[in-house]
Amino acid sequence: MKSHRIQSSIVGLTLVTAAFTSPAATSHAQPASVEQLPGVYRFALGDAKITALSDGTIDLDLHQLLRGVTPDRLDALLRQDFLEDPVRTSINAFLVETGKRRVLVDTGSGELFGNRVGRLQESLAAAGVRPDQIDDILITHVHIDHVGGLAHGGKAVFTKATIHVGKPDLAFYFYPAASSRAHGDAESSASAVKVLKPYANLGRIKPFSGSEEIFPGMTGTIRPGHTPGSAFYTLESQGRKIVFIGDSIHSLAQLTDPSITIAFDTDSKLAEGVRTQAFADFASHRTLIAAPHLPFPGIGHIRQAGQGYTWVPVGYDDRPLTPLPLED
């Protein structure tokens, strides 16, 4: 069974790359070209300032990628959200600024997905932050659209940052035993080595297991399924909380029916269990969440709706932010 799940993962990773050029993604008449400005949305959470950063968007052919749903039912679910397949899907990263540090949650796709994405540096510049000002990077999991921005041309982009990542993902993608190098996710393994090696050479990778405090107020918790070391990161400040949930969701259809899985999962049953438990908890406690693949800025709440849930994106707020000033 594990072999089958791993093969599903590599098929899914091939499909997402193909989404750039697949006929399904280009069959509709194209509208007039519109160049989007860098994507930045910021808000205060207690003493912290959080900025959602767009890395760009890609078309995902969900008919090929989603599992446990028929094409007809999927189309009906998408129509409920005024969508149709293929679905334009966000790649979001998040900047957390506190009185002591600047932290990125994920780094987008960098140079690994072509020039239609990889716009994190534009968005970071629009937010007024340079790569060398980032102190820590929290990786939700080692897939190429989350770690790709770590390096460019084989060199570290964030020259002063420490990389925090789930230890099981390092073992699976970066340090696989020689006997398991053909474990089925070779594309992600090759990419992980390419972008993480500069930081490993500098001694700047800090793996964690279970649930650990990354720094005061920020906790990382391994939630395996999508990958062996997938992690949630929970930030708490002045009684407020946000959870960065990684790829526990790729499509709004998975809110309506959390049993729907995706080809990228290394263990679809585990991933489904994580999503089912997490969504119930988030809805019950009205927890603010940040999701890398929900429509930018990917910040909001989920609300119970029958046997499933609905997405309630954060409301726009342009009032001045009042977190503590960042120390130099």
Score class of each variant (00 low, 15 high):
325 P>Q: 04
152 H>N: 11
157 V>I: 09
68 G>V: 04
238 Q>P: 02
7 Q>A: 05
172 F>E: 04
61 D>S: 03
171 A>E: 12
11 V>S: 02
85 D>V: 14
235 L>R: 09
274 V>Q: 13
96 V>Q: 12
53 L>F: 15
255 L>Q: 13
311 W>Y: 15
24 A>N: 06
288 L>I: 15
282 F>W: 15
307 Q>V: 04
145 D>F: 08
198 P>L: 10
206 K>L: 11
69 V>H: 05
325 P>T: 00
230 S>W: 02
96 V>T: 13
29 A>D: 09
68 G>I: 01
328 D>C: 04
274 V>R: 07
71 P>F: 07
275 R>A: 02
107 T>H: 08
35 E>S: 13
54 S>R: 09
6 I>P: 00
269 K>Q: 12
280 A>V: 06
193 V>S: 10
13 L>R: 01
258 P>M: 03
188 S>M: 09
276 T>V: 08
246 G>L: 05
255 L>M: 09
139 I>P: 08
273 G>A: 10
328 D>I: 12
86 P>H: 08
137 I>E: 04
96 V>D: 10
318 D>G: 00
8 S>A: 07
30 Q>L: 14
147 V>P: 02
20 F>H: 03
202 L>F: 03
236 E>N: 10
258 P>S: 00
281 D>N: 14
96 V>W: 11
273 G>T: 15
324 L>R: 06
7 Q>E: 04
294 L>K: 08
268 S>A: 15
82 F>Q: 12
151 A>H: 06
40 V>Q: 02
281 D>V: 10
209 S>T: 14
132 D>C: 05
43 F>V: 07
285 H>L: 07
188 S>Y: 05
177 A>T: 08
55 D>C: 01
85 D>C: 14
210 G>I: 09
304 Q>V: 12
271 A>S: 11
189 S>W: 01
163 I>P: 00
265 D>C: 08
206 K>F: 06
86 P>M: 11
22 S>E: 02
158 F>C: 07
245 I>M: 11
271 A>Q: 01
65 L>Q: 07
65 L>H: 03
158 F>D: 10
184 G>M: 00
223 R>I: 13
254 Q>F: 00
22 S>C: 00
8 S>F: 08
324 L>I: 10
154 G>D: 01
3 S>C: 00
284 S>W: 07
87 V>K: 04
147 V>I: 15
200 A>W: 07
132 D>Y: 07
76 A>R: 15
9 S>L: 09
197 K>P: 03
73 R>P: 01
172 F>W: 09
